[in-house]
Design a protein around this nucleic acid. Structure first.
Lengths: 154, 154
DNA sequence: CTTGACTCTGTAGTGGCTACAGATTGTCTA
DNA sequence: TAGACAATCTGTAGCCACTACAGAGTCAAG
């Protein structure tokens, strides 16, 4: 099958498939005479694996590691467990951070119930305080609240 | 004060201060004869405001909007409430997503307790399934689990 | 033979910084 | 006054995981 069909079969944008190939996650497939990529079921399976991991918010580096275990089937898979445990830890840590953040935001919101003028807005005044209680830099590999995996425009 | 002092006073890396200036969040300050930036307390206060918002995981665009309200003090601040409510909604949505993710990961982890060889590893086998239940593209402006605000090397 | 769908390569942009090169300026000590 | 060293300057490239698009080529149907 060609790239468009693979894209449909796995729910992956075409550009993303080519990106995975550039990144070495997906092997470069053979080409037609006209230079079109030709995939088979093993490619589709591998891509599904990658995408499945991505729905679990794993980093490409983590997925790369998992693929290595898949490719070396006699190897011990204890490291897979370790990787997964670490990933679960990251997710749990991020949840905790966001819970604290949610509380802070809600208490901030409490400071201004009515729509007064901005000069007396409790929220803006509170935000101007130099409190220095929270650090912006988080140690882990857990992303913030915005941005993230983008939706395509089309 | 010069940029280093401002950096220390607000806990902001110097490069970030210059970045905010480029982005128009912080007004370009006057310079010395030798072309060094000179800040006063109003700059420090504004930078604190920005950093405080960032600890609350607001996007720079959201902060830009808040700064506009701050600069137009006679304006009604109902829109501040609206913005904050939306932001709280984003955080709550992200928490929910991560909770679901955490469950999925934990049940995946259940599939392999011992360190067997990778060929029979329940985790790797499960990940190879083409299940298509979860979408990668999230609509909101809530980021994934990895990456995020980086810590500096020094 | 033309139309239109599909694919190709390559490059630039996203957010919010971080890192660093190479030059200039300021401050302190001998 | 010189020299060392810190602080600052501008500009550019990199991070992640894509996304967007330009401009060219390929292919199948009518």
């Amino acid at each position: 099958m060609r790239i468009g069909e693979l894209a449909k079969a796995t729910g992956t944008p075409i550009e993303t498939i080519r990106y995975y190939e550039r990144e070495g996650l997906l092997a470069a497939p053979p080409r037609t005479e006209g230079n079109f990529r030709i995939y088979d079921d093993t490619h589709a399976e591998r891509l599904s694996f990658i995408r499945h991991c991505r729905t679990l918010d794993m980093a490409l580096d983590e997925i790369r590691l998992l693929l290595r275990f898949k490719d070396a089937p006699t190897e011990n898979c204890g490291d897979v467990n370790t990787l997964l445990d670490a990933h679960i830890g990251h997710v749990a840590a991020r949840i905790h951070e966001l819970r604290v953040l949610e509380k802070t935001l809600k208490s901030l919101r409490e400071r201004c119930h009515e729509a007064r003028d901005a000069a007396h807005c409790g929220i803006l005044n509170e935000l101007s305080q130099t409190s220095r209680q929270g650090a912006i830099n988080r140690g882990g590999h857990v992303r913030g609240v915005h941005g993230g995996v983008r939706t395509r425009k089309t």
